[in-house]
């Protein structure tokens, strides 16, 4: 498995022309080939969601996708959430509501919530809980993550 393929990953609006083995995961390519280390890897088997990024309009676990599958599709990662120095409402809400402690799972939660709130701005509290239950956090006990996402959702609707 040493043959490499040339692909272009468009991350946060910037093209990265890279050459990867077909088996390289999107998570590894984003972090190692493109140097965007804000996306974290927590389990490499699709359970914890720390590596969640937005591919097209969908939140995906980048450890379960090959980099080659994302060739040419716009990808958004945590590094692209803020506009210049202006933080995204979710980033602000996570700080305001203490939605993070060690910060390792945070990029995954931020990208998951971003994609879901863009798609479904009026999501019910219960559906939101289902969505947030797809990622793991070991520090916060989730209460403040839920509070933060609800607060950001309200702000994004306003």
């Amino acid at each position: 498995m040493t043959g490499k393929v040339a692909i272009t990953l468009n991350i946060n609006g910037r093209d990265h022309a890279i050459s990867v083995e077909p088996r390289r995961t999107l998570a590894d390519a984003i972090r190692e080939n493109c140097g965007q280390t804000g996306t974290h890897i927590g389990c490499e088997h699709g359970v914890c969601g720390a590596c969640t990024v937005i591919v097209g309009d969908d939140p995906v676990r980048s450890c379960l996708m090959f980099a080659a599958q994302a060739d040419g599709v716009p990808i958004r990662t945590v590094e692209g959430l803020a506009k210049g120095d202006t933080l995204h409402p979710l980033q602000r809400a996570f700080m305001d509501h203490h939605g993070l402690q060690c910060g390792f799972c945070t990029p995954g939660f931020l990208m998951l919530a971003t994609a879901v709130l863009e798609r479904e701005p009026n999501i019910t509290d219960d559906d939101l809980l289902d969505v947030l239950a797809s990622n793991l956090c070991r520090c916060t006990g989730y209460q403040n993550i839920i509070k933060a996402v609800r607060a950001a959702a309200a702000e994004m609707r306003a």
Partner: peptide, 21 residues
């Protein structure tokens, strides 16, 4: 008060060991 740790972490600018090449 808001945590001084947070601005870097919510922006994906934290430094974790596995980030090193």
């Amino acid at each position: 008060i808001r945590r001084l740790e947070d601005p870097a972490l919510v922006a994906g600018q934290g430094h974790f060991t596995a980030d090193l090449q």
